[in-house]
Design a protein around this nucleic acid. Sequence first.
DNA 1: CGCTATCTTGACAATCTTCAAGGCCTGTGG
DNA 2: CCACAGGCCTTGAAGATTGTCAAGATAGCG
Lengths: 237, 237
Amino acid sequence: MAINVRPSEALAPCLSCAARLKSVCRAIPDRDLACLVAASNELTVPARRSFIEEGDVATDFYNIVDGSAKLYKSMADGRQQIIGFAGVGSFLGLVAAGPYAFSAEALEPMRLCRFSQPALSALLDEFPAMERLLLERVSAELAAAQEQMLLLGRKTARERLASFLLDPRLRKARSGGTELLHLPMPRSDIADYLGITIETVSRMLSMLRLAGIIDIPGKSTILIRRRKQLESIAARE
Amino acid sequence: MAINVRPSEALAPCLSCAARLKSVCRAIPDRDLACLVAASNELTVPARRSFIEEGDVATDFYNIVDGSAKLYKSMADGRQQIIGFAGVGSFLGLVAAGPYAFSAEALEPMRLCRFSQPALSALLDEFPAMERLLLERVSAELAAAQEQMLLLGRKTARERLASFLLDPRLRKARSGGTELLHLPMPRSDIADYLGITIETVSRMLSMLRLAGIIDIPGKSTILIRRRKQLESIAARE
DNA sequence: CGCTATCTTGACAATCTTCAAGGCCTGTGG
DNA sequence: CCACAGGCCTTGAAGATTGTCAAGATAGCG
């Protein structure tokens, strides 16, 4: 692994990085940040631009420094399944060799930290703590994927919406028994995430609203009025 | 980590282990097998018995030495989603703390190698190569889960069956343009894996048979007659 | 040789999708 | 300032796929 320190402000990019505490990089102590800086370089991606294409050889790995992305798989006839959303601190790419399993597209302007495959390998060799964090992270993602498999394989449309609205990754603000959610994506993305159509998303939201369980003060804002009822719908308990 | 060598044939259990070459244990060299033996103990599980219960605290990890299992998640009203099948060499459990994300039930009599959470942690600390293998394994499982999310969210019943029959993990024997598959599970498990009902599984298999694409010489045996047609159904290309 | 599990097939019902039209919000240009 | 255009979202009606319920076939096993 070649150690090439950047010409100026060698450590600054990582020391002041907003994502450092949220990402697997936090396993690397301050005094070794030179290695991290040398292994990575930052790039920006405009909204709506793809930066990972399913099927391409996985030569690079990305750490999200700012912004968020949707991760999805596509079929030849245009159907697509969103397999997840990634925010600041998420790590994208495969550790094993092989093609990317999904595509990634920026939902808003993004800043990414890119590692080449060999550079990442070397980093993991040198900092086992980072490898452990990565293992924990991938394990957690696997558990989330399994939960989504239950949703996609066995839940009704109403149950999918209820589960989606209760996802802790969406949680923003709460006050008393009610919670205010901001949906950072259009209905089409919710539909592709839940394995249904945008019309069904719309219908189920209306149904929940008419039942007094939620309120929809704006297109992208949901107020949860009766969380317990939503939970009982999500789990069919 | 206490090192308690077993009373007799200290290394034999691992040296002669049928699963060793297929499992993450292969990262541990022969001369260090004492550590592996000390960290683990073998147990047997009869067919149809569960040995991991979703929601239980994940205190143990299992390596499959012999036999196979189905991994599934259940809902309160009995619906279940099989998230995968595990065979010899598979590693089950979470590396991170927390409850198990799924249940595991033996499909046939099994032999398992059990590691306690702290023992595994200590092993991974001592043998980074094993941790790397585990990371690669979990990453591959995540990619498989993502592929299954596409299937469950966006494919029709016919496409699901075609994809299932083409899954390389089912592959047994081939001769010329035809392949003979053995389905090691009943229709109900196929249904719970593909997110459909057993009646739909049966109907779609009959449909593929009437179309001349497959043959069903026995309940658990499928002969693939026209692989390319099956592939075009699976991918809608 | 019959018993019981599992599997297949059929008829009907429910859910979800598809197709279509209309509403709402936002930004832009007259 | 207002009108209009284009997204995005909602709602409705019709159709298709899949689920549910029920009955019958098949196969493995004592």
